[in-house]
Amino acid sequence: MIVGDSKPLEEILEMIQGKEKVLVLGCRGCVTVCNVGGEKEVGILATMLRIARKKAGLAPTVDERTIERQCDPEYIEELAEVAEGYDAIISIACGVGPQFMSERYPKVPVYPGINTTFIGGALEHGVWSERCQSCGNCLVHNFGGLCPIARCSKSIMNGPCGGSANKKCEISPDVDCIWHLIVEKMAGMGRLKELERVWPVKNWITSRDGGPRKRVREDLKQ
């Protein structure tokens, strides 16, 4: 899923300063699963904003709404009758949400209420970890199912580097050296010899280095 963090309340309050009618818009996709932008979080953020407004003696018009997904136009369309009645919309979906919203409703300022951080998974309730960097050319099967692109600080294909010590990466004692784990995993599987393969420089054209990406499926397109 796409993982995000709430923006500091102070930052959001500054964004909506002087805006009378505000909508907090959630998304039932990834951000619901990572507890940052679902119906519950919409309720929490909207309540906080209403308290702040009441405290400042302002009209506490902060409405709540959560749609199925903010990354599909048909759900964005559901707001057609109400969107332009707001002075500000705070989207707490990933970075796609505020963009889709402001493309469809150009008259209303749309603000991001969260910072989108990475593609990852839940290690336990309340803990998420980065697993994919969407490089556009998946090779994890060569490394025992562990991704050296997303999980090595330097994204090196032929590791470990000299910064690996006691299973940890030199950038922080909290970061595992993924190359240490790759070697251990491959050894455990009896596939250590496969790591003797020398990987040439990775072609990053499939990643962001090739510019913004777009995918067209001719079989699905209408």
Binding site: K40, I44, M48, I51
Partner: peptide, 10 residues
């Protein structure tokens, strides 16, 4: 829940 407590303050 955070909401129980926040709503009370609201």
């Amino acid at each position: 829940d955070i909401l129980h407590m926040l709503k009370s303050f609201e």
